[in-house]
Design a protein around this nucleic acid. Structure first.
Lengths: 241, 241
DNA sequence: TATTGCGAATTGTATAGACTATTGACAAGC
DNA sequence: GCTTGTCAATAGTCTATACAATTCGCAATA
């Protein structure tokens, strides 16, 4: 089989498997077909399949166990700075009661300048949602998010009564790339009041943009009181991080 | 050659090469022997060498170029949050003039409580260095660092006249693991004065601990004015980050 | 019932070889 | 000096096969 292989077969296998994982088609714990099955499916040698799967294991996407098979890995990890965060699961880990309020929700069409800044097509619509997250009733973060309706049509009708926007997106929309910026700022009067802070208290701000195959999905700014949040990470020179 | 291989040969190759890189024996840009040379050196097949080198390339430790060879990668990268940062190289990238002042330097022996908190053996000594970093003359960060003399004996005599502590460590001491915490705080009066800020201005704080094979090397707290610094990162679910 | 032992499924590692793709270096020619 | 073409070094990918290591699940046994 001498394919006109513009993309190497191994990479194709890997990207197809990764697609099922990042799309949620194969949830954490789902079993990946064993090597010999993929061998037949792609009519290639075992080494080729093995290299693809080994790479995914090294990247932490799957876990492989002899005799048992390969399984989609749990996405949770210690490198919290780099992970998409979810308030509900974070609260569960820390034994807190999580609640949230949707402060506002509007469908808007940004003007040209804003659309360009966001990387949206001119005239495309977004949903803008502002919300307040609480742990044990105490305000712990203010979130200002826009969601591209072009990328996420379902957001048109969603009112976020059952899950906050971040969680809803995480469970309903796949993403392939993200970028974040962490910075600090002083709280303004309104923000301070909302979060129960003294005016000018320091806040940690996380801005994150998420794409799915090149198309912007969401842009979010989350503001945390400095005394109630921190980002931690652990890494080594060989981990690729 | 049926070795009594408790460690697979491929892993041995990789860890030996990584050792030379993280130890600084092979600096960035240094050429790694070509595959056929490693093949002979370890008397193994090319696939084995190739898998080791490919893995290192995927992890970003080396860069491979056809016909040219494999080279130790520059440690700098876009995923700035996760990288060990170096003021001098950051300034060079941004076209700024970097200077620094050593504010104080002392050899101390932390009391038991502090030593335990740092993960040091009781009674072991450290060097504590406070410094101020400037870009184009403007204070851009305050650094408070301790260096374990057990892990870095050379720090006993070093006065950091030629390079600031972070840069000096980066070039003289290998590390294998690091942990960081990013948080925000309001500047106190003294810090505000030092950085040329209004009192209570928000600051971004990076705390980083670095180890070499389990032994603590250094602990550093760097405080940045909120208006002069941010951490950025870009990642995807498949990158292992 | 509980334990032990064994076979088979699955991944881990390695060999030896083949062909392809890229590109640095040098030589030939303008 | 400058450009162009060729060669060869080097990495990229893949095949086909082999044996090792781990461990799940079942059967035999106490």
């Amino acid at each position: 089989m001498t394919n006109p292989r513009r993309q190497p077969l191994g990479e194709r296998i890997r990207s197809e498997l990764e697609g099922r994982i990042v799309s949620g088609d194969w949830p954490p714990g789902h079993r990946v077909p064993p090597e010999h099955a993929l061998m037949e499916q792609y009519s290639c040698s075992r080494m080729t399949v093995n290299k693809a799967l080994s790479g995914m294991a090294a990247a932490g996407l799957i876990v492989r166990r002899r005799r048992a098979g390969s399984f989609v890995a749990d996405p949770q990890g210690e490198r919290a700075v780099m992970k998409i965060q979810d308030f509900a699961s974070e609260a569960a880990q820390r034994g807190l009661v999580y609640t949230y309020d949707i402060l506002s929700r509007r469908v808007e069409t940004p003007d040209q300048a804003h659309a360009a800044a966001l990387g949206l097509h001119p005239g495309s619509s977004i949903v803008r949602v502002r919300s307040l997250h609480r742990m044990n009733g105490v305000p712990s973060a203010y979130e200002d998010r826009i969601i591209s309706l072009a990328a996420v049509p379902a957001a048109q009708e969603e009112r976020f009564h059952d899950a906050p926007p971040g969680t809803w997106l995480l469970h309903n929309v796949p993403w392939t790339e993200a970028e974040h910026v962490i910075r600090a700022r002083n709280a303004g009067a309104r923000l301070a009041a909302m979060l129960g802070l003294k005016p000018a208290a320091a806040c940690l701000v996380l801005e994150r943009r998420t794409w799915h195959q090149g198309a912007l999905v969401t842009v979010v700014t989350i503001t945390y009181p400095a005394d109630r949040h921190r980002f931690t990470g652990r890494f080594s020179p060989t981990s690729g991080a």
